[in-house]
Protein backbone atom coordinates (compact mmCIF):
# COMPACT_ATOMS: atom_id res chain seq x y z
CA UNK A 1 0.00 0.00 0.00
CA UNK A 2 2.94 2.32 0.74
CA UNK A 3 4.17 1.77 -2.80
CA UNK A 4 0.71 2.55 -4.19
CA UNK A 5 0.53 5.79 -2.20
CA UNK A 6 4.07 6.73 -3.27
CA UNK A 7 3.10 6.35 -6.95
CA UNK A 8 -0.21 8.16 -6.31
CA UNK A 9 1.49 11.14 -4.69
CA UNK A 10 4.10 11.26 -7.45
CA UNK A 11 1.32 11.14 -10.08
CA UNK A 12 -0.60 13.88 -8.30
CA UNK A 13 2.48 16.13 -8.20
CA UNK A 14 3.17 15.41 -11.84
CA UNK A 15 -0.45 16.01 -12.92
CA UNK A 16 -0.77 19.34 -11.13
CA UNK A 17 2.18 20.54 -13.18
CA UNK A 18 0.30 19.79 -16.40
CA UNK A 19 -0.76 23.04 -18.07
CA UNK A 20 -3.82 21.49 -19.68
CA UNK A 21 -5.25 20.97 -16.20
CA UNK A 22 -5.15 24.69 -15.43
CA UNK A 23 -6.40 25.59 -18.87
CA UNK A 24 -9.48 23.38 -18.50
CA UNK A 25 -9.99 24.52 -14.92
CA UNK A 26 -9.89 28.15 -16.03
CA UNK A 27 -12.38 27.44 -18.83
CA UNK A 28 -14.70 25.69 -16.38
CA UNK A 29 -14.55 28.51 -13.85
CA UNK A 30 -15.18 31.09 -16.57
CA UNK A 31 -18.18 29.06 -17.76
CA UNK A 32 -19.57 28.74 -14.22
CA UNK A 33 -19.20 32.50 -13.75
CA UNK A 34 -20.76 33.07 -17.20
CA UNK A 35 -23.87 31.23 -16.00
CA UNK A 36 -24.62 34.32 -13.91
CA UNK A 37 -24.65 36.45 -17.08
CA UNK A 38 -26.47 33.85 -19.20
CA UNK A 39 -29.27 33.99 -16.64
CA UNK A 40 -29.71 37.66 -17.52
CA UNK A 41 -30.54 36.74 -21.12
CA UNK A 42 -33.39 34.40 -20.32
CA UNK A 43 -37.10 34.87 -19.77
CA UNK A 44 -37.81 32.99 -16.52
CA UNK A 45 -35.69 29.92 -15.61
CA UNK A 46 -32.78 31.94 -14.12
CA UNK A 47 -32.22 29.41 -11.34
CA UNK A 48 -32.34 26.57 -13.82
CA UNK A 49 -29.89 28.19 -16.26
CA UNK A 50 -27.35 28.92 -13.51
CA UNK A 51 -27.62 25.45 -11.94
CA UNK A 52 -27.64 23.57 -15.24
CA UNK A 53 -24.74 25.51 -16.77
CA UNK A 54 -22.65 25.16 -13.62
CA UNK A 55 -23.22 21.43 -13.23
CA UNK A 56 -22.70 20.80 -16.96
CA UNK A 57 -19.41 22.78 -16.89
CA UNK A 58 -18.10 20.74 -13.95
CA UNK A 59 -19.04 17.44 -15.62
CA UNK A 60 -17.82 18.37 -19.10
CA UNK A 61 -14.46 19.87 -18.15
CA UNK A 62 -13.94 17.18 -15.50
CA UNK A 63 -14.37 14.47 -18.12
CA UNK A 64 -12.13 16.31 -20.61
CA UNK A 65 -9.41 16.53 -17.96
CA UNK A 66 -9.84 12.86 -17.05
CA UNK A 67 -9.46 11.82 -20.68
CA UNK A 68 -6.63 14.12 -21.74
CA UNK A 69 -4.55 13.78 -18.59
CA UNK A 70 -5.55 10.17 -17.87
CA UNK A 71 -4.70 8.70 -21.23
CA UNK A 72 -1.23 10.18 -21.29
CA UNK A 73 -0.41 8.81 -17.83
CA UNK A 74 1.12 5.47 -18.78
CA UNK A 75 1.92 6.14 -22.43
CA UNK A 76 3.96 9.20 -21.40
CA UNK A 77 5.79 7.17 -18.74
CA UNK A 78 6.73 4.62 -21.39
CA UNK A 79 7.61 7.20 -24.06
CA UNK A 80 9.81 9.12 -21.63
CA UNK A 81 11.14 5.84 -20.23
CA UNK A 82 10.46 6.87 -16.62
CA UNK A 83 8.30 3.76 -16.23
CA UNK A 84 11.42 1.61 -16.59
CA UNK A 85 13.10 3.29 -13.62
CA UNK A 86 10.00 2.97 -11.45
CA UNK A 87 9.31 -0.63 -12.41
CA UNK A 88 12.92 -1.57 -11.72
CA UNK A 89 12.00 -1.25 -8.05
CA UNK A 90 10.29 -4.12 -6.23
CA UNK A 91 6.84 -3.16 -7.44
CA UNK A 92 4.22 -5.07 -9.44
CA UNK A 93 2.70 -3.49 -12.51
CA UNK A 94 -0.68 -3.72 -10.81
CA UNK A 95 0.62 -1.56 -7.96
CA UNK A 96 1.91 0.92 -10.51
CA UNK A 97 -1.48 1.09 -12.28
CA UNK A 98 -3.40 1.47 -9.02
CA UNK A 99 -1.04 4.20 -7.82
CA UNK A 100 -1.36 6.04 -11.10
CA UNK A 101 -5.14 5.80 -10.91
CA UNK A 102 -5.37 7.06 -7.35
CA UNK A 103 -3.00 9.93 -8.09
CA UNK A 104 -5.00 11.04 -11.10
CA UNK A 105 -8.31 10.62 -9.30
CA UNK A 106 -6.95 12.77 -6.47
CA UNK A 107 -6.01 15.44 -9.03
CA UNK A 108 -9.40 15.29 -10.72
CA UNK A 109 -11.35 15.39 -7.50
CA UNK A 110 -9.32 18.38 -6.27
CA UNK A 111 -10.01 19.99 -9.64
CA UNK A 112 -13.73 19.15 -9.48
CA UNK A 113 -13.74 20.34 -5.86
CA UNK A 114 -12.42 23.76 -6.90
CA UNK A 115 -15.04 23.98 -9.67
CA UNK A 116 -17.79 22.84 -7.29
CA UNK A 117 -16.70 25.39 -4.71
CA UNK A 118 -16.93 28.15 -7.33
CA UNK A 119 -20.33 26.88 -8.37
CA UNK A 120 -21.68 26.62 -4.83
CA UNK A 121 -20.36 30.12 -4.08
CA UNK A 122 -22.21 31.43 -7.11
CA UNK A 123 -25.43 29.75 -5.95
CA UNK A 124 -24.95 31.13 -2.43
CA UNK A 125 -24.38 34.65 -3.74
CA UNK A 126 -27.62 34.43 -5.72
CA UNK A 127 -29.48 32.93 -2.76
CA UNK A 128 -30.29 29.76 -4.74
CA UNK A 129 -30.63 26.42 -2.91
CA UNK A 130 -27.37 24.46 -2.62
CA UNK A 131 -28.47 21.19 -1.06
CA UNK A 132 -30.34 19.82 -4.15
CA UNK A 133 -27.22 20.09 -6.36
CA UNK A 134 -25.03 18.00 -4.03
CA UNK A 135 -26.24 14.57 -5.31
CA UNK A 136 -25.51 15.70 -8.88
CA UNK A 137 -22.01 16.84 -7.89
CA UNK A 138 -21.27 13.58 -6.06
CA UNK A 139 -22.46 11.43 -8.97
CA UNK A 140 -20.38 13.57 -11.37
CA UNK A 141 -17.37 12.79 -9.15
CA UNK A 142 -18.26 9.07 -9.44
CA UNK A 143 -18.57 9.37 -13.22
CA UNK A 144 -15.11 10.97 -13.26
CA UNK A 145 -13.80 7.99 -11.28
CA UNK A 146 -15.15 5.60 -13.94
CA UNK A 147 -13.92 7.70 -16.89
CA UNK A 148 -10.48 7.97 -15.27
CA UNK A 149 -10.35 4.19 -14.93
CA UNK A 150 -11.43 3.91 -18.57
CA UNK A 151 -8.72 6.36 -19.66
CA UNK A 152 -6.11 4.46 -17.64
CA UNK A 153 -7.20 1.17 -19.18
CA UNK A 154 -6.72 2.54 -22.69
CA UNK A 155 -3.51 4.20 -21.60
CA UNK A 156 -2.22 0.79 -20.58
CA UNK A 157 -3.51 -0.83 -23.75
CA UNK A 158 -2.88 1.71 -26.51
CA UNK A 159 0.50 2.37 -28.02
CA UNK A 160 -0.12 6.09 -28.48
CA UNK A 161 -1.95 8.81 -26.54
CA UNK A 162 -4.04 9.78 -29.60
CA UNK A 163 -5.42 6.26 -29.91
CA UNK A 164 -6.09 6.13 -26.19
CA UNK A 165 -7.96 9.44 -26.31
CA UNK A 166 -10.03 8.27 -29.29
CA UNK A 167 -10.94 4.96 -27.62
CA UNK A 168 -11.82 6.63 -24.32
CA UNK A 169 -13.86 9.35 -26.00
CA UNK A 170 -15.64 6.69 -28.07
CA UNK A 171 -16.58 4.67 -25.00
CA UNK A 172 -17.56 7.82 -23.12
CA UNK A 173 -19.93 8.75 -25.95
CA UNK A 174 -21.29 5.19 -26.18
CA UNK A 175 -21.69 5.11 -22.39
CA UNK A 176 -23.92 8.16 -22.63
CA UNK A 177 -25.97 6.68 -25.47
CA UNK A 178 -26.66 3.36 -23.76
CA UNK A 179 -30.22 4.52 -23.00
CA UNK A 180 -30.96 4.58 -26.73
CA UNK A 181 -29.90 0.96 -27.35
CA UNK A 182 -33.23 -0.62 -26.29
CA UNK A 183 -34.96 1.87 -28.62
CA UNK A 184 -32.71 0.70 -31.44
CA UNK A 185 -33.38 -2.95 -30.53
CA UNK A 186 -37.11 -2.22 -30.64
CA UNK A 187 -36.74 -0.90 -34.18
CA UNK A 188 -34.69 -3.88 -35.34
CA UNK A 189 -37.30 -6.45 -34.36
CA UNK A 190 -36.54 -9.98 -33.15
CA UNK A 191 -33.33 -11.58 -34.36
CA UNK A 192 -29.55 -11.51 -34.02
CA UNK A 193 -29.33 -7.77 -34.47
CA UNK A 194 -31.50 -7.13 -31.44
CA UNK A 195 -29.57 -9.65 -29.37
CA UNK A 196 -26.26 -8.06 -30.35
CA UNK A 197 -27.51 -4.55 -29.51
CA UNK A 198 -28.88 -5.72 -26.16
CA UNK A 199 -25.61 -7.54 -25.40
CA UNK A 200 -23.71 -4.29 -25.95
CA UNK A 201 -26.35 -2.54 -23.83
CA UNK A 202 -25.58 -4.78 -20.86
CA UNK A 203 -21.81 -4.86 -21.36
CA UNK A 204 -21.15 -1.12 -21.72
CA UNK A 205 -20.92 1.10 -18.63
CA UNK A 206 -24.11 3.16 -18.49
CA UNK A 207 -22.56 6.57 -17.84
CA UNK A 208 -25.85 8.39 -18.37
CA UNK A 209 -27.14 7.01 -15.08
CA UNK A 210 -24.61 9.20 -13.27
CA UNK A 211 -26.37 12.20 -14.75
CA UNK A 212 -29.07 13.39 -12.35
CA UNK A 213 -28.79 17.01 -13.43
CA UNK A 214 -32.22 16.91 -15.12
CA UNK A 215 -33.81 15.64 -11.90
CA UNK A 216 -32.06 18.35 -9.88
CA UNK A 217 -33.12 21.24 -12.11
CA UNK A 218 -36.71 19.95 -12.21
CA UNK A 219 -36.77 19.79 -8.42
CA UNK A 220 -37.19 16.01 -8.30
CA UNK A 221 -35.74 14.26 -5.27
CA UNK A 222 -32.74 11.99 -5.84
CA UNK A 223 -33.29 9.09 -3.40
CA UNK A 224 -30.38 8.12 -1.17
CA UNK A 225 -30.83 4.50 -2.23
CA UNK A 226 -30.25 5.50 -5.86
CA UNK A 227 -27.10 7.44 -4.94
CA UNK A 228 -25.73 4.48 -2.95
CA UNK A 229 -26.55 1.99 -5.72
CA UNK A 230 -25.07 4.25 -8.39
CA UNK A 231 -21.93 4.70 -6.29
CA UNK A 232 -21.66 0.91 -5.96
CA UNK A 233 -22.18 0.60 -9.74
CA UNK A 234 -19.37 3.09 -10.34
CA UNK A 235 -17.03 1.37 -7.88
CA UNK A 236 -17.73 -1.96 -9.56
CA UNK A 237 -16.74 -0.56 -12.96
CA UNK A 238 -13.63 1.10 -11.49
CA UNK A 239 -12.47 -2.23 -10.02
CA UNK A 240 -13.17 -4.08 -13.30
CA UNK A 241 -11.38 -1.48 -15.41
CA UNK A 242 -8.37 -1.28 -13.09
CA UNK A 243 -8.03 -5.07 -13.13
CA UNK A 244 -8.21 -4.99 -16.93
CA UNK A 245 -5.69 -2.13 -17.04
CA UNK A 246 -3.31 -4.04 -14.72
CA UNK A 247 -3.66 -7.13 -16.89
CA UNK A 248 -3.08 -5.18 -20.11
CA UNK A 249 -0.06 -3.40 -18.63
CA UNK A 250 1.42 -6.61 -17.21
CA UNK A 251 1.31 -8.18 -20.68
CA UNK A 252 2.90 -5.18 -22.30
CA UNK A 253 6.42 -5.71 -23.50
CA UNK A 254 8.57 -2.97 -22.05
CA UNK A 255 11.90 -4.34 -23.09
Amino acid sequence: MRMVMAVAVMTFREAVRDRILYLLLAFALVMIAAARFLALLTVGSEVRIVADTGMAAIAFFGVLTAIFVGVSLITKEIEQRTAYTILARPMTRGTFVLGKYLGLLMTLWVNAGVMSLGFVLLLALRGDPILPVLPALWLTAMELAVVTALALFFSALATSSILGILFTLGLYVAGHLVWSFPLLAGRLGPGWGTRAVMAVYYVLPNLDRFNVRAAVIHGDPVPLEFIVLQTAYGLGWVILLLLAAALAFSRRDLT
Partner: peptide, 21 residues
Protein backbone atom coordinates in the same frame (compact mmCIF):
# COMPACT_ATOMS: atom_id res chain seq x y z
CA UNK B 1 -30.78 14.50 -27.48
CA UNK B 2 -28.61 11.75 -28.89
CA UNK B 3 -26.08 14.29 -30.14
CA UNK B 4 -26.00 16.12 -26.81
CA UNK B 5 -24.03 13.23 -25.24
CA UNK B 6 -25.56 13.40 -21.81
CA UNK B 7 -26.13 17.15 -21.74
CA UNK B 8 -29.69 17.44 -23.16
CA UNK B 9 -30.92 19.90 -20.54
CA UNK B 10 -27.89 22.13 -21.05
CA UNK B 11 -28.36 22.10 -24.85
CA UNK B 12 -32.05 22.87 -24.30
CA UNK B 13 -31.03 25.84 -22.13
CA UNK B 14 -28.65 27.16 -24.77
CA UNK B 15 -31.17 26.84 -27.61
CA UNK B 16 -33.83 28.46 -25.43
CA UNK B 17 -31.49 31.39 -24.69
CA UNK B 18 -30.63 31.66 -28.36
CA UNK B 19 -34.32 31.53 -29.37
CA UNK B 20 -35.14 34.44 -27.06
CA UNK B 21 -32.39 36.53 -28.66
Amino acid sequence: KVASLGYPTFVADMIYLWSIQ
